[in-house]
Nucleic acid binder design. Structure first.
Length: 861
RNA sequence: GGGCGCUUAGCUCAGGUGGCUAGAGCGCUUCCCUUACAAGGAAGAAGUCGGGGGUUCGAGUCCCUCAGCGCCCACCA
C-alpha cells in the first residue's frame, strides 16, 4: 500500500465494478424488506451543482446503509425534461445557426431537442457516477420516456373526466420573453421602487372627476371601469356614474366592489380586467369587458390606440407623458411594491388574460393536508409542516399549460365544426358531432406535472408492475426546502388522489449550500463552486464527507473548502490506519463479519465497548436523519480514540504477537470502514480489499458488535493510559513502551517507573505538558528514556506555577458552585435523584483533584 | 402585510424532551520529524451563549420583549 492516499487513483475504477456486480440493484437483497428512494430529478439541461451533491450524498448515505442492513434497497435515478429551460437552451443553439424554432417547425424542433438530449443529457448521469452515488441504472427513467409519457397522458385524461382539470380564461402569469404562461410558484417576487401614478378620470356627465392610482400606467389603456368600496362615504354619490377614459375616450362605469381597500391611495381603483387578477374578478362581478391590450411579447396591440407597437415599458412612459399633456396626470410619487419576475429569465411577468388548462386543487388539498396532519407523512425537521400547511391552505388553481413545444403535449382535441373539446389518450377519429376536422391543443404540460408523478410513474404505474407493488409508497424523500411547493406538495396531492396511497413516508428537508460569502451560489454572481472541481482536487469522498458533516439538520450552510480539506485528511488518516493494520495482520486477514474476540484484554475490552456504544449512537442518529451528528461522533471516535490511542496501545502487543489484540484491531478497523462506507464509499472499498479482500464492502453487512464490559478505569478514552498503568502496576507488570505512559491521568503518572528520574531532573512531579528546559514533557514520554535523561536544562518553574494557579482557581470556583448547589435544600429536594447524586460525585472529585494540585503547587515553592 | 428562521470561540458552525467545568473543524500559542500517517502527534489559550425582562432549585436550552440579519408566502391598485 502507498504511504499516502490518492483519491483520484482510488476513485477511478470502483463505480463500474459495483455496477457490473449489480450491487446497486435491490435484487442484491432479494428477500429483504423493500426500501425505496426516488431521486429528485435533476434537469437534463443542468449539470451537478453543490445542492445536488448534498442532496444526493444524503440519499446515498441512507440507501447504502439500508442496503448493508439487508434491505432490498432501491435508489431510482432519473432526470426531468425541464420544458422551458431545455427549450431555451436548444433555441439558443439554433440561433447560433441563424435558425428559429418557428422556421424549423414543431416536429423538427422536437427532433433537435432529442438530439441535444442524446448529446448532453448524459453529462449529469456521468456526474452522479463520479460522485459514487449508488443508483440503480437499470431502472433509470426520464420524464419524456414512453412509459412516463403514457402515465402523464392518462393522468390528464382521468383528471379531466373527474372535473379536476378544466380549461378556462383566466389571468395567469405571462412571461413576455419566453412567451408562455407560468404557474404562480414560478414567479419570484421582489420589492422594487416604482411609481404610483395618480390619474384623474373626468366624469362623463358632470364636471370634476375621480382620481385613481396605478403602478402600471399603460394598463389604463385597457380599463373598463373604476371601482370603489361600497361603504366608502366619499364615493357613495358617484357609484353608477360613468367616466371618460382619457387617451382612449371610452365611457366606463364606476362600480362598487368590496375588494377595494378604501384606505389605499385614493380609495378608487381603475379596473383592467384583462391585466390584473383582482380587476378580472371585479370585472366578472360587474360584467365589465376584458380588453387585452398587449400581445404575447408584451407589445401594445391595436386596442392600445396610438400606443400600439410600443413595448410595455416604453408605453408606460408614453402614456404618462400623454396623460400629463391632457392635464389629467395628478401626480407621480415613488412607491415601493413587489414585482413578479420569471423564475427562469427574470423578465417582469405580466398578469395576462388567456385561455389555459388548470388543475382544480381545492379537492386535492384536503387529503394532502390530512395525510401530514395525522402523521402518515412526516416532515423532518417537523417545522416544515407548518410551511407546508400554510402554503397548501392558500393555493389557487394550478395553471398547467405552457405555450412551448418541448414537453408532454396536452391530449385535447378541438373540433373545427362545433368547437367541442375531446380529451382522450389517442387522437379521436371524429368529434361527437361527426366532424373529422380536429386539431390538437398546441400547448404542453408544466414540467412539474410529470415530476409530480415521479414516485409512482417511475415504478411502472399505472401498470400494476412488480416494482410498483414492491416499492410504492417510497420510503423517504430527500430534498431542499426550496421545492416543497413545486414538487413535494404536488407529489403528495397527486399521489394520494391517483394511487390512493401516500407517495412516501418521510420527507427529509435539508438546507441550501451557500457560497463562501453566505450568499446564494449563482452563475451571475460568479461565486459558485463546481462540485466536480472539488472532486478533482480533493476526491468525491472528501466532498461527500464534508457535506454530510457540515449539513446541519435544516440550516443553510456556506460552503468552505477547508471542510473538504479536513475530510480528505481524514481519508488519509483512515488509509494509514488500515496500512498499519495490514502490515501487522497481513493482507486480507480479517473476516468480513463477526470475529469479535471472546476474551479480550483490558485495552481491547475498552475499545470494543466504545465501538459498541458508538455504533448504537450512530444508528440512533442515522435513524433520525441526523447525519452530521452521526458522522461527527464517528469521526471523533475513529480519529480521537481508535487512531490516536488504541493503535498506540496496540503496537507493543502486536510486536509480541498478542492474539486478542490482532483480532480486536482487525474487527475495529473493519467495522469503522463499514460505518464510514455510506459516506466515503470509494476509499472504504479500496481499503476493504486490503483488509478483508473478500467481496465488496458495498455489499457487506452493517456492523453490530456485541456489548463489552469496559474494565474499571477504562470508561473513557481519557482514562485509558492511566488505566493501563494502574492495571499493569496492580499485576506487577512493567510498562512496555514509552508511549503507553503518556501522561493523561497525573495520578497514574505518579506511579510510573521513570517518575523518580523525572523528579530528580525537574525538581517537581511531572504532569502532561510540564515544561522542562524549553521542551515539554510529552516529548519525554513519547521519546525514549535516553531522551529523558539527556534533559539537563533549567526547569520553567514559573510557567508551571502559573499553570497550576490557573487550574486551582478554576477548580475552586467550580467547587464553590457545586457546594452551593448541594447546600440548596430546594435543589436536593426537587432535582432528580440521579442529578443530585452526580453532583455529589463531582464535588468529591473536585476536592480530590484540588488537594492534589495544591500539593503539587506547594512543591514548587 | 403575514409566516418562519438565525444571532454561541478570531472564522464557519454543532449544542433532541432545561441538569457534570458549553463543543467541533479551521485558525492561533508552546513543544515534538515518533518505527501507519508532518496531509501527523502532545499540550494549551480563547466564549458576559445579541440586549433586557420572566418562569424555575437550576436557562445557551422554555416564555415575553427589543435590536440586527436572512428566507418564504401575499391580487395594496
Amino acid at each position: 500500500m502507498d504511504p499516502a492516499y490518492d483519491p483520484q487513483q482510488v476513485e477511478a475504477h470502483w463505480y463500474s465494478r459495483w455496477e457490473k456486480a449489480g450491487i446497486f440493484r435491490p435484487e442484491l437483497n432479494a428477500g429483504g424488506p423493500p426500501f425505496c428512494i426516488v431521486i429528485p430529478p435533476p434537469n437534463v439541461t443542468g449539470s451537478l451543482h453543490m445542492g445536488h451533491a448534498l442532496d444526493q450524498s444524503i440519499q446515498d448515505v441512507i440507501i447504502r446503509r439500508k442496503r448493508m442492513q439487508g434491505y432490498a434497497a432501491l435508489w431510482l435515478p432519473g432526470t426531468d425534461h425541464a420544458g422551458i429551460a431545455t427549450q431555451i437552451v436548444v433555441e439558443r443553439e439554433l440561433a447560433r445557426e441563424g435558425l428559429t424554432r418557428e422556421e424549423l417547425g414543431r416536429e423538427r424542433f422536437i427532433e433537435q431537442v432529442w438530439m441535444w438530449k442524446a448529446r448532453s443529457g448524459g453529462a449529469i448521469t456521468e456526474q452522479i457516477r463520479r460522485m459514487g452515488f449508488s443508483t440503480d441504472w437499470s431502472r433509470e427513467r426520464f420524464t419524456m420516456d414512453d412509459g412516463l409519457s403514457e402515465a402523464v397522458k392518462k393522468v390528464f385524461v382521468d383528471l379531466y373526466h373527474q372535473d379536476l382539470i378544466y380549461r378556462g380564461k383566466r389571468i395567469i402569469n405571462w412571461c413576455p420573453r419566453d412567451r408562455t404562461a407560468i404557474s404562480d410558484v414560478e414567479v419570484e417576487h421582489e420589492d422594487e421602487l416604482g411609481e404610483l401614478v395618480h390619474i384623474r378620470y373626468p366624469f362623463e356627465k358632470s364636471s370634476g372627476g375621480i382620481e385613481v392610482a396605478t403602478t402600471r400606467a399603460e394598463t389604463m389603456l385597457g380599463d373598463t371601469g373604476v371601482a370603489v368600496h361600497p361603504d366608502d362615504p366619499r364615493y357613495r354619490a358617484v357609484i353608477g356614474k360613468t367616466v371618460r377614459l382619457p387617451l382612449i375616450g371610452r365611457e366606463i362605469p364606476i362600480v362598487a366592489d368590496a375588494a377595494v381597500d378604501p384606505t389605499f391611495g385614493t380609495g378608487a381603483v381603475k379596473v383592467t380586467p384583462a391585466h390584473d387578477p383582482t380587476d378580472f374578478e371585479i370585472g366578472q362581478r360587474h360584467g365589465l369587458e376584458a380588453i387585452v391590450i398587449m400581445d404575447e411579447g408584451g407589445v401594445i396591440n391595436a386596442n392600445g390606440g396610438r400606443f400600439s407597437g410600443l413595448d410595455r415599458m416604453d408605453a408606460r412612459r408614453a402614456v404618462k407623458d400623454a396623460l400629463a399633456a391632457e392635464g389629467v396626470l395628478v401626480k407621480v410619487e415613488p412607491h415601493e411594491h413587489s414585482v413578479g419576475h420569471c423564475e427562469r429569465c427574470h423578465t417582469v411577468v405580466e398578469p395576462y388574460l388567456s385561455e389555459q388548462w388548470f388543475v382544480r386543487v381545492a379537492p386535492l388539498v384536503g387529503p394532502a393536508i390530512e395525510a401530514v396532519r395525522r402523521g402518515d407523512i412526516r416532515f423532518i425537521p417537523e417545522r416544515w409542516e407548518k410551511t407546508y400547511f400554510h402554503w397548501m391552505e392558500n393555493l389557487r388553481d394550478w395553471n398547467v399549460s405552457r405555450q412551448i413545444w418541448w414537453g408532454h403535449r396536452i391530449p385535447a382535441w378541438y373540433c373545427g365544426a362545433c368547437g367541442e373539446i375531446t380529451v382522450a389518450m389517442e387522437a379521436p377519429p371524429a368529434c361527437r358531432c361527426g366532424s373529422t376536422s380536429l386539431r390538437q391543443d398546441e400547448d404542453v404540460l408544466d414540467t412539474w406535472f410529470s415530476s409530480g408523478l415521479f414516485p409512482f410513474s417511475t415504478l411502472g404505474w399505472p401498470e400494476d408492475t412488480e416494482d410498483y407493488r414492491t416499492f410504492y409508497p417510497n420510503s423517504v424523500l430527500v430534498t431542499g426546502y426550496d421545492i416543497i411547493s413545486f414538487w413535494v406538495a404536488r407529489m403528495i396531492k397527486l399521489g394520494l388522489h391517483l394511487t390512493g396511497r401516500k407517495p412516501f413516508s418521510d420527507v427529509v428537508i435539508h438546507g441550501m449550500i451557500r457560497a463562501e460569502d453566505g450568499r446564494k451560489m449563482s452563475k451571475s454572481l460568479g461565486n459558485g463552486v463546481d462540485p466536480l472541481d472539488v472532486v478533482r482536487d480533493y476526491g468525491a469522498d472528501a466532498l461527500r464527507l464534508a457535506l454530510i458533516q457540515a449539513a446541519a439538520p435544516n440550516q443553510d450552510v456556506p460552503f468552505q473548502t477547508e471542510w473538504v480539506d479536513a475530510a480528505r485528511r481524514f481519508g488519509n488518516k483512515l488509509w494509514n490506519a488500515v496500512r498499519f493494520t495490514v502490515t501487522h495482520l497481513g493482507e486480507g486477514g480479517v473476516a468480513p463479519d463477526g470475529g469479535y474476540p471472546d476474551d479480550p484484554g483490558p485495552e481491547a475490552a475498552w475499545v470494543l465497548s466504545r465501538l459498541h456504544a458508538v455504533v448504537a449512537e450512530v444508528d440512533a442518529s442515522l435513524d433520525e436523519y441526523r447525519f452530521s451528528d452521526a458522522y461527527g461522533t464517528l469521526y471523533n471516535f475513529a480519529w480521537g480514540e481508535v487512531f490516536d490511542w488504541y493503535l498506540e496501545l496496540a503496537k507493543s502487543h502486536l510486536r509480541s504477537g498478542d492474539a486478542p489484540t490482532r483480532t480486536t484491531l482487525g474487527v475495529v478497523i473493519r467495522d469503522l470502514l463499514k460505518l464510514f462506507h455510506p459516506v466515503i464509499p470509494f476509499v472504504t472499498e479500496e481499503l476493504w480489499q486490503h483488509l478483508v479482500g473478500d467481496g465488496f464492502i458495498a455489499a457487506s453487512r452493517w456492523p453490530s458488535p456485541p456489548a463489552y464490559q469496559a474494565p474499571a478505569g477504562f470508561e473513557t478514552f481519557r482514562d485509558v493510559v492511566g488505566g493501563v498503568r494502574r492495571f499493569r502496576a496492580e499485576h506487577g507488570l512493567a510498562p512496555r513502551h514509552p508511549l503507553e505512559v503518556t501522561i493523561v491521568d497525573p495520578e497514574a503518572a505518579m506511579e510510573a517507573w521513570w517518575v523518580p528520574q523525572f523528579k530528580s531532573l525537574a525538581g517537581f512531579e511531572p504532569r502532561a505538558g510540564s515544561s522542562v528546559a524549553g521542551g515539554t514533557f510529552s516529548r519525554v514520554v513519547s521519546g525514549s528514556l535516553e531522551a529523558l535523561i539527556s534533559f539537563e536544562g533549567v526547569v520553567d518553574v514559573a510557567a508551571e506555577r502559573m499553570r497550576l494557579d490557573r487550574a486551582i482557581t478554576e477548580l475552586v470556583a467550580a467547587q464553590a458552585r457545586t457546594e452551593a448547589k448541594l447546600a440548596n435544600p430546594q435543589f436536593v429536594e426537587r432535582a432528580p435523584a440521579e442529578v443530585v447524586a452526580k453532583e455529589r460525585e463531582r464535588s468529591a472529585e473536585l476536592s480530590a483533584t484540588l488537594a492534589k494540585l495544591t500539593t503539587q503547587r506547594s512543591d514548587l515553592e
